[in-house]
Design a protein around this nucleic acid. Sequence first.
DNA 1: CCTACCGATCGGTAGG
DNA 2: CCTACCGATCGGTAGG
Lengths: 212, 212
Amino acid sequence: MRKLKLTHPDFQDLTEQKAAKVLEILEATQSLLIEEGYAGLSMRKVAARCNMTVGNLTYYFATKQDLVHVLLDVALEGYTDDIREIMADSSLTGEQQLAQGLEFIMQDLLTRETTRFFPELWAMANHDPVVNGEVQGLYDREQGLINQLIAKVRPDLGADDRKKLALYISAAIEGHTIFIGHDKGWNSKSREVIDLAVQNFLDLVRNWGKSA
Amino acid sequence: MRKLKLTHPDFQDLTEQKAAKVLEILEATQSLLIEEGYAGLSMRKVAARCNMTVGNLTYYFATKQDLVHVLLDVALEGYTDDIREIMADSSLTGEQQLAQGLEFIMQDLLTRETTRFFPELWAMANHDPVVNGEVQGLYDREQGLINQLIAKVRPDLGADDRKKLALYISAAIEGHTIFIGHDKGWNSKSREVIDLAVQNFLDLVRNWGKSA
DNA sequence: CCTACCGATCGGTAGG
DNA sequence: CCTACCGATCGGTAGG
């Protein structure tokens, strides 16, 4: 996961001071979410981490929900930007771009931040429609990128086939978070499993719809 | 997910009345976890659902942590029992057993209960070592079953290869929870995606380590 | 941006 | 001494 950046138009009107404070609050919120989970997240803990009073924090973010929604908006937008950069290396073939992009996503889920942040999002999405929409938006963008690269490797495939393949690959990758992620039991095998997974994804894309 | 059953030896000494009460408490806890998530789970809500006082609830389970740990112990043990039954149909070939077992696990994650319960577990596992151990135990058992069926289809493979394949398949399956699960955006495509996934798993197991 | 609060609810325990 | 509970309340914290 990259550092948070306030690129969204909503934040362009803020004074520099206020934008810095907003960023500090969002970073504190994200690290609390990573360390203690949503169940352990409170306005008071965020305020304390920023050396603020609760009253002051609510001046920036009226409710706990607002704070979380804005954090996800900022964090998840940046997340696909990273993938987009990796996948856009024009010195590589389409197949290499696909392999490198999928490898990047899998490497990222080994980090402590991602291993802890994303399961929290998945759980929150089941109980908060706004979070659900933000998470779904993230994966729509991720699958859109994978879809484009599949089209380069397999220009013969229709849109439906590409969408299905991108969905499968995206789901298969994300599932590894809970197995080979940071502090997980199978983390020591991450190198081998990532190789197996990426190889499998490439074979699948290359051979989909062709008779063996 | 199956209904909860108190088969564990710890519960064999209880009177019938007390065992029924324990089961009622565990069921209430599970449905609250599914409906509101761990952040919305409280001893008071569990007690209210069982028409009990909080004082009485703590007679059965001293702390909220105890309650959650016992619930997971009971629920997750039953979960692999179901998979074991499906995979043990002796009228089928090894390949058919594998296909049917994987299909069963994927169909199960379309249900509201599983779609909501498991992401909650994954998030809790990141913040509670006991939960982490229980979740890891579940997937060890699941991958053990998949491993056995891989061995039937590919008796030539070594233990390491089988383990790696079982881990990949298990991770790829679980990842679909957040995409094609109940109330998720891609749920309408679940039939096609499950077919693609199971087909991919079978191809992978059949062809692993063989030159194309 | 702070002080001083609110209604309610939290997990857990008291004596009987 | 054990079981299965009760009404009431503990010290603190929740979002606002």
